[in-house]
Design a protein around this nucleic acid. Structure first.
Length: 657
DNA sequence: TTAGGGTTAG
């Protein structure tokens, strides 16, 4: 099959059409503003009337003046907030506005998601020296909300005053901005730097960072380090912190640890709220411990809290994970009665659990029920069923449902796109595969590890090995490490189509990744490299992995290299062969000498080789010996005579012993 | 005078 489309941003080697401009056009539209109401604004303008003053009215006048100035500032704040031309209204009112007024406007813009105005105002404030700590902390917070963590870092890094830079409010908002934008690692690094520069972190700082560990692999152990640190700094755990830690435990499936935090928290006098309860329930769901879950819900009720929608939905999750499908159905009915099953989530939980337990028909029945009841859906239910069909190898049904999704919904995210991609790939629908990839491009959704994995597997299945190769290069350049099984079969196929250097590059991706690598792969790539004449690379493979390569393969490599490899490396190769326990045979030695005879300028290498061989106890056979003698004028007669006589003595002593 | 929070689905 031939792929005519190729090249674009997300998949530079696969899609052809240039990135459609519609995305950037839409994303650059200014945020919608509230309607401008000039009539209201006009009413709020206060005219200051200057009256003649008598001593008796002076005090009142001052008060009036004060309140007048307050009122005029308040009016100016409104004017600026409602103005459609921020620059000119700042020019007009900026002079009477105090820093706190400007901060109020800044927060107003932030709360209204008026990002361009927000930045314009902050710039103006900086240019006019009208900023305070609050301006920075608010502005940085809103930069985080508008997904501009780099801009926030830039603002922070440009702060020159040291005490401002280690101000806990500003530091907390920068860290929060990084964490909420998925940059936990850089947040932690910056945190360390801030401490070195004199920041005294408080509970908010720690909670901000801890939040980042909820959705991170091995987040629990990392969060423990922070907890230790904050305790060491004399800070106490608060109810928010317990809430975050419970969520960390739940997402790491640590129900015992969650339980222990929950009890600690109560012991310390904090009353658990529904968030705490639901996190602990969620932790129980990972092991399907419905007894403990039931007990906990009872406890919650007796403490006077009424289980809400989330609590009951999470309880349903526990039942599903515990395999209690009848009980799950009863609870779902209860949720329905309470009006808590208006959206698809509880159905999704049950469907997914049924499908994963191999009860696909029952899952399908729930899916039908959900559609008949016109439950509000964002497409999750489709995603779950598409995956379920793929899992059961019902690719045709998966494909149909993916098409159905596309017809009904216009909302995509990465997981759903991957699910559809997988369905189309497994069903062998090339056009639909390309269509999904274009869609991903258009929506500027970055492919992840799974996307690449699905595509590479599919391209291999279609024997589009070079396309698969380019996809893997993309994958690798995005920092994803392909898994061994995929690489291994891929290397095999690349070898078969004589794409030797591509095979080597895949081998190296695996070799220099953190993934484990099966020993047999070294020999596999060695054969490919020899076949492709990439002997120098083959040499590196043998040198680094001689213990994992069979004698036969080493021999094959040796004779290929000595015959055709770089002459300057022949002696090194001999040494590596010998070092790996391979006995250099007469044929190989003869071949090496023959090559040197053709290139007499390499005579130093011949002498070195002969000398080394004597040292290792190798005997020169008679054929080779005669060939050397015949050509000894090329190398220097005397030296050769000396070396050969040394050899002769050695061979005699070997024979006699 | 400004910073932090946690719960459910693919």
């Amino acid at each position: 099959m031939e792929i005519s489309v190729n090249l674009s941003t997300r998949f530079p080697h696969i899609l052809s059409s240039p990135l459609p401009s519609s995305f950037s056009a839409v994303s650059s539209l200014p945020a919608l503003r509230p309607p401008h109401n000039s009539a209201t604004a006009a009413k709020t303008i206060i005219t200051i009337v200057v009256k003649e003053q008598t001593p008796a009215t002076a005090l009142i006048s001052r008060r009036n003046h004060k309140s007048n100035s307050y009122l005029s500032r308040k009016s100016a704040v409104l004017q600026v907030q409602q103005s459609s031309d921020l620059a000119s209204s700042l020019q007009r009112f900026g002079g009477i506005l105090k820093v706190q007024d400007l901060n109020a406007i800044l927060r107003h813009f932030g709360e209204q998601n008026r990002w361009p105005d927000l930045s314009q105002l902050f710039n103006w404030m900086q240019q006019h020296g009208k900023t305070s700590v609050s301006s920075y902390s608010s502005y940085i917070k809103f930069l985080g909300k508008s997904l501009k963590p780099l801009k926030a870092l830039e603002i922070y890094n440009n702060i020159t005053d040291e005490s401002t830079k280690t101000n806990v409010f500003i530091c907390n908002s920068v860290l929060s901005c990084l964490v909420r934008n998925g940059k936990l690692d850089s947040g932690i690094k910056l945190f360390d730097k801030m401490k070195q520069n004199g920041l005294t972190p408080d509970a908010v700082t720690y909670n901000t960072l801890l939040t980042g560990f909820i959705k991170v692999k091995r987040g629990y152990s990392k969060s423990l380090e922070l907890v230790q640190e904050l305790k060491h700094n004399g800070l106490q755990m608060d109810s928010v912190m317990y809430g975050i830690l419970l969520a960390v435990c739940a997402s790491n499936s640590l129900h015992e640890e969650a339980e222990s935090y929950f009890n600690c928290m109560k012991d310390e006098g904090h009353s658990p709220n529904p968030f705490h309860y639901s996190s602990l329930l969620n932790a129980y769901s990972s092991v399907g411990n419905y007894e403990k879950a039931d007990e906990l819900v009872q406890e919650m009720k007796s403490s006077g809290l009424v289980p809400n929608k989330v609590i009951l939905t999470t309880l349903l999750k526990v039942y599903v994970r515990g395999g209690l499908f009848d009980k799950s159905r009863e609870l779902l009915a209860e949720l329905d009665t309470l009006g808590y099953a208006e959206d698809e989530m509880p159905y999704c939980l049950l469907m997914d659990g049924l499908a994963k337990a191999g009860r696909l028909d029952e899952a399908k029945a729930v899916f039908s029920e959900l559609q008949e009841k016109s439950v509000k859906s964002d497409g999750y239910a489709h995603g779950i069923m598409i995956s379920a069909f793929c899992r059961s190898k019902l690719f045709e049904e998966a494909k149909q449902l993916a098409k159905d999704f596309e017809a009904k919904f216009n909302k995509y995210d990465l997981v759903l796109l991957n699910t559809m991609l997988s369905a189309y790939c497994r069903a062998g629908e090339m056009e639909s595969v390309m269509h999904v990839m274009k869609k991903m491009n258009k929506l500027a959704i970055c492919p992840d590890y799974y996307t690449f994995h699905i595509l590479i597997k599919y391209f291999c299945k279609e024997k589009l090995y070079l396309l698969a190769y380019r996809t893997m290069v993309d994958m690798h350049s995005k920092g994803h490490q392909p898994e061994e099984e995929l690489c291994s079969s891929f290397i095999f196929h690349l070898g078969k189509i004589r794409a030797h250097s591509e095979a080597l590059s895949v081998y190296n991706m695996l070799r220099y990744s953190k993934r484990t690598m099966c020993k047999a792969l070294h020999e596999k790539i060695l054969h490919i490299l020899i076949a492709g004449g990439l002997l120098k690379d083959a040499y590196v493979v043998v040198k680094d992995n001689s213990g994992s390569i069979s004698r036969a393969a080493v021999k094959k490599f040796g004779s290929a290299f000595v015959r055709l490899g770089n002459i300057n490396l022949v002696n090194d190769v001999m040494k590596v062969l010998h070092g790996s326990g391979y006995k250099i045979d007469e044929g190989l030695f003869h071949m090496a000498i023959s090559r040197y005879i053709v290139e007499p300028e390499k005579k130093e290498l011949v002498l070195q080789l002969l000398d080394w061989m004597s040292g290792q106890g190798y005997v020169v056979d008679s054929t080779t010996r005669n060939m050397i003698l015949k050509n000894s004028h090329l190398f220097g007669r005397q030296v050769i005579a000396d070396l050969l006589s040394k050899q002769h003595v050695m061979s005699k002593s070997l024979r006699s012993s």
